[in-house]
Amino acid sequence: MHDLEDLYQEIVMDHNRRPRNFGELEDPTATADGFNPLCGDQVTLQLFLEDGVVSDVAFNGVGCAISKSSASMMTEELKGKTVEHAEKLFEAFRKMITRAPGESYDSELLGDLEILKGVSQYPARIKCATLAWHTLHSAIQDGNEVVSTE
């Protein structure tokens, strides 16, 4: 059953067991909720933005291993990055996850996030991986929003 490991890489499992930046910020400057009604996954994302830079970030919620680890890895990647860079990552990540076989994506930009590339072979799991990112996008755009993957 080797191909299941394309999805559940050791690092993914580790983030699932010990999610990073899991919890709440004291005074976030932007917050958004994401919800996947199909499977009940729910994520709350909080950002502390200073001069267009993500100086702190935290997430909370319930979800499967893919959605939890994706959120966890995202928060690690975001710290210290500008909002513009975060939006670029969102676009690149989405492209990687939803790409057709053989299609390319910006692997250099994504760095460690590339670990989740195997999700593209599991259409039923795409929304799990992108939930946190859509939530990030809406937190940046609107400050306070509820997004749904439906």
Binding site: M1, D3, L4, C39, G63, I66, A124, R125
Partner: peptide, 29 residues
């Protein structure tokens, strides 16, 4: 310790088709 979605994907890989989610009975679940 294992989310239904992960379990469903695992079982699918060994040929077992089960449903995961709220089964169109959200308030009950």
């Amino acid at each position: 310790d294992v989310h239904p979605h992960d379990l469903g994907t695992f079982l699918d890989r060994i040929g077992i088709a089960v449903r995961t989610g709220h089964h169109c009975a959200m308030p009950l679940v």
